[in-house]
Amino acid sequence: MASQGTKRSYEQMETDGERQNATEIRASVGKMIDGIGRFYIQMCTELKLSDYEGRLIQNSLTIERMVLSAFDERRNKYLEEHPSAGKDPKKTGGPIYKRVDRKWMRELVLYDKEEIRRIWRQANNGDDATAGLTHMMIWHSNLNDTTYQRTRALVRTGMDPRMCSLMQGSTLPRRSGAAGAAVKGVGTMVMELIRMIKRGINDRNFWRGENGRKTRSAYERMCNILKGKFQTAAQRAMMDQVRESRNPGNAEIEDLIFLARSALILRGSVAHKSCLPACVYGPAVASGYDFEKEGYSLVGIDPFKLLQNSQVYSLIRPNENPAHKSQLVWMACNSAAFEDLRVLSFIRGTKVSPRGKLSTRGVQIASNENMDAMESSTLELRSRYWAIRTRSGGNTNQQRASAGQISVQPAFSVQRNLPFDKPTIMAAFTGNTEGRTSDMRAEIIRMMEGAKPEEMSFQGRGVFELSDERAANPIVPSFDMSNEGSYFFGDNAEEYDN
């Protein structure tokens, strides 16, 4: 993207840094990872977990959730003011799984939030270390993106479920800051804005008074975040219109849905970061690795190297396929839920299948599930090659597409044709070009129609051997075009429920 120079890199967003050079960025990201790792080690000690239990991804998720809940100030305040039966607002906890007599047992633990905050700050040299908290939120978000298709949420806001490739980060909490905003897809931002506008339509006082002023500035800020994701002048001009509207209503909703559809071809720039579970960072720190000293990046080879040398386990339900569970977590670790499966298959070195073909449910185990038949197995999170994460949407291309997802959002900077089903997408653009945004709409449609099938995206960008740390010898991959490109292809993934 041309304006790259004016933006802070995501590592800076990730670490609240002012302008830093590459070495400083690597050190501050490393410091953040160190903090998460030290916190995780301490929690495993508190909970008396064995090494194996500490490497269980379900335990990692519970521990991450506990610290996120302990620092969720708004919710904590709300819980104190609106006490609900049987919930102690000062405590947080969740299921911890232990191996007892050759069987997995679930144990519900409860801790004072104050105590968890103390352990977290102690692991982070006394700081609140917001960057580390956001990092864990993005890992949870990436896992949700890989596990669930947001059909219901899309339909509720009037969008087409086939636009799911635009929904990265749709389950990120509001408090995820600049680093969170960077990884949100165009569809996620559109959905947040539509929800806001709908509230304004239904509630006369939404934009009024002292609160209304705050609401208005939040609305304009979200519009600017979305505008910054678009790469064409016409899309940005249309966002200006939406932002400046005196009284946002149905016309703005129409414009936003139009823009979301246009992003299936004229893709937005959305950041991709490899955020790993805390149970990967903990053992690495415990083994003596100093992330701050060595430096770390979320968008280069580092996460690949770390996963190459990590042992992570997962509980497996009786009829689940461990290899499929591994694929789910591998995609989440690489922030690749909406990437082209052919690119992923090449990088991973084994075939990556669409969601609907995987015999696996989510990673988390519900409290009512029976533990008797639970097994555990090693997650295979290694890769054959590594590639640089991208934040450009890439230019655009036609490809055989599917009944489910009709476009992709690249996660890796790797040369390819970008699949999208042009006739299906263009069919949504018939007729409606009147109104105050008509010239911009016409211009956007013209650009979409001009998108050429034979153009290559990320020209000359390749993948790298894991021994090639400096990215000196790019390998331009070859793809098996007979395979499906979309992950949520004609899909039956479970729906995400809060």
Rank of each mutant, 00 (worst) to 15 (best):
R118L: 11
Q42K: 13
L306M: 13
L166P: 02
Q4E: 11
V299E: 08
T396R: 15
I475A: 09
I41D: 07
E484W: 03
A233I: 04
N417Y: 13
I445Y: 06
F464H: 14
V67I: 15
K91M: 10
L276W: 05
G404I: 03
N211Q: 13
T378Y: 07
P453M: 06
E254S: 05
P248W: 14
S467A: 01
I444D: 04
K452S: 08
G462F: 09
M374K: 10
E455M: 11
A22L: 00
D480I: 00
S50T: 14
E24Q: 15
R436Y: 03
M371I: 15
S383E: 01
E80T: 13
D439A: 00
D497L: 06
F291Y: 14
S176M: 04
I57G: 12
L259K: 01
R156V: 11
R150L: 12
D128L: 14
E465N: 01
E192G: 09
R38I: 11
C333D: 02
Y10C: 09
R216T: 13
Q58N: 14
K103F: 00
Q398A: 04
F206S: 08
E114S: 04
L172F: 10
H140K: 04
I57Y: 03
P322C: 13
M456I: 05
A336M: 02
S176K: 05
R208G: 03
P95G: 14
N309K: 15
C44K: 15
T430R: 15
R361T: 08
T6G: 00
R391H: 01
S170Y: 02
R99T: 12
N370D: 13
R19K: 14
S413W: 05
W386K: 05
G35A: 13
M163Q: 04
R121D: 04
L166E: 14
M66N: 08
D160Y: 08
N492L: 02
G268P: 11
Q398E: 00
D497H: 03
Y289L: 14
K357I: 10
Y97T: 06
I25F: 05
S482N: 15
F458T: 02
L344Q: 09
R470W: 07
T147Y: 05
E455I: 14
I347C: 14
E292C: 14
R150A: 05
T215M: 03
R261H: 07
I197S: 10
V270D: 10
M371G: 02
K90I: 13
R19F: 12
N211Y: 11
E252T: 00
R152K: 14
N417W: 14
A70L: 01
M43C: 08
G485A: 10
F304E: 06
V363Q: 03
E455A: 11
A178N: 14
E320F: 08
D203C: 06
I116S: 01
S413I: 03
Q149S: 11
T424I: 13
C164Q: 05
S217W: 08
L466N: 06
R74D: 12
G228I: 05
S262D: 06
E210T: 05
E11I: 10
T23Y: 06
T215W: 01
L172T: 04
A153C: 11
A284D: 08
M196S: 10
S28C: 12
L193V: 14
I253L: 11
A403G: 04
A129L: 10
V242M: 15
